[in-house]
């Protein structure tokens, strides 16, 4: 019997170390029955993309509170694409002003979550959007 378990990477790109949100999410995903690979803070987009492929995750969740999301989030998408892994979805969270949303969606992010989002809603998004792949 095949048993698909959602695998997620929670990653913190860039130099900011405010990992409260990332760690709360990692726990929340575990409690939702996902397998979570947490990278820790201070990762480069290259490191994140390489790790996501090695771990064959369904989604990479990025958290950034430093304001550098406009550079870092698209860079992760781009690194995945360069490595032939554009089927791995990238979502982002953190302090992201409304006016950056379109820019980030255009850059290939699949969803953006900002403070105040309910954990259950985030989990639900993953359940709805993660597709089984072959």
């Amino acid at each position: 019997m095949s048993e698909h378990i959602i695998r997620v990477m929670v990653a913190k790109p860039g130099l900011d170390g405010h990992d409260r949100g990332a760690r709360v999410l990692a726990r929340c995903f575990r409690d939702a029955g996902f397998e979570v690979i947490y990278t820790g803070c201070h990762q480069t987009p290259e490191q994140i993309a390489a790790a996501a492929i090695q771990e064959d995750v369904d989604v990479v969740g990025l958290s950034c509170l430093s304001g550098a999301h406009r550079y870092l989030f698209p860079a992760v998408v781009e690194q995945l694409r360069q490595r032939g892994a554009d089927d791995i979805d990238v979502v982002g969270g953190g302090i992201i002003p409304d006016q950056d949303f379109q820019f980030l969606y255009d850059a290939g992010l699949k969803a953006l979550f900002t403070p105040g989002e309910k954990l259950d809603d985030i989990v639900e998004w993953f359940r709805q959007n993660v597709k089984k792949r072959d």
């Binding site: 130099l15 480069t44 550098a68």
Partner: peptide, 22 residues
């Protein structure tokens, strides 16, 4: 800003996109 806080110069590859942000 973050590069200064972490002990990197602005031209370090680790500092990309962060200069003056915070």
């Amino acid at each position: 800003d973050f590069p200064t806080l972490m002990g990197y110069d602005t031209d370090s590859p680790k500092a990309r996109g962060e200069c003056g942000k915070c």
